[in-house]
Amino acid sequence: MRSNTIHKGKNLTFFTPEVTSGLDAVFLDTGISAGFPSPAEDFKEERLSLDRELIKNKEATFFARVSGQSMIGAGLEDSDLLVIDRSIEPANNKIAVCFLDGEFTVKRLKIDKDGMFLQPENPNYPIIKITEDNDFIIWGIVTNVIKKV
């Protein structure tokens, strides 16, 4: 899976996926034990494509690299790569990439009778109430996060 940079902002850098064919990796469908391996276990081998696993709608899918710590409680850390699907309908409690007052940000959507809020997953950051005064668009929904170890 390759990508092309399309936008670099303060909080997120966006990429478009370039889905490739013929680059499937070997997938060992045995479960990886964190304890002692079983010597009697047979290995079942099949091919796995991360493109097919992570991208459900190629035309509406983008990647963005996280910059900042506002979503660490949700497991989104600085330099993580987000998979964002713009075709998914926004809903309460989804993690969304939003365009807010000239900047992209990633936050959890909270929608209730009092309105819409962007909730960070770090207590050091404030909850943002969306009002009519904001320039606001829900740009896409985060479907996966890719981490380096």
Rank of each mutant, 00 (worst) to 15 (best):
M1V: 14
S3G: 13
I6N: 15
I6V: 14
K8L: 08
K8F: 05
K8Y: 08
G9W: 04
K10L: 11
N11T: 11
T16F: 01
T16H: 04
P17W: 08
E18R: 13
S21I: 03
S21T: 03
G22E: 10
L23P: 02
D24T: 10
A25V: 13
A25T: 08
A25S: 05
V26G: 02
V26Y: 02
D29K: 14
D29I: 12
T30Q: 13
T30A: 12
T30H: 14
G31V: 06
I32S: 04
I32Q: 07
I32T: 12
I32F: 11
G35V: 11
F36L: 14
S38E: 12
P39W: 11
P39F: 14
P39T: 01
F43D: 11
F43Q: 10
F43A: 12
K44N: 13
E45R: 10
E45N: 04
E46T: 10
L48C: 04
L50T: 09
E53S: 07
E53V: 14
L54E: 02
L54G: 02
L54M: 06
K56E: 07
K58P: 15
A60Y: 07
F62P: 01
F63A: 01
A64P: 15
V66K: 04
G68I: 01
G68Q: 05
Q69Y: 05
M71I: 01
G73N: 02
A74E: 13
A74K: 06
G75F: 00
S79E: 11
S79P: 06
L82P: 08
I84C: 05
D85L: 00
D85Q: 00
R86Q: 05
S87L: 09
I88L: 04
E89P: 02
A91D: 09
A91I: 05
I95V: 15
A96E: 07
C98A: 15
F99M: 09
L100P: 05
D101G: 10
F104S: 00
V106A: 15
V106T: 09
R108K: 15
L109P: 07
K110Y: 07
D112R: 08
K113C: 08
K113V: 06
K113I: 07
K113G: 08
G115F: 13
G115E: 10
M116R: 05
F117E: 06
L118V: 14
E121T: 02
P123N: 11
Y125V: 12
I127L: 08
I127W: 07
I128D: 08
I128N: 03
K129C: 10
K129Y: 08
K129I: 10
K129S: 15
K129A: 13
K129W: 03
K129R: 11
I130N: 12
I130F: 14
E132Y: 10
E132V: 07
E132S: 12
D133A: 08
N134K: 02
N134A: 06
D135A: 15
D135N: 14
F136C: 03
I138T: 04
W139L: 05
I141N: 01
V142S: 13
V142D: 08
V142M: 10
T143S: 06
N144T: 01
K147Y: 07
K147I: 09
K148Y: 02
V149H: 12
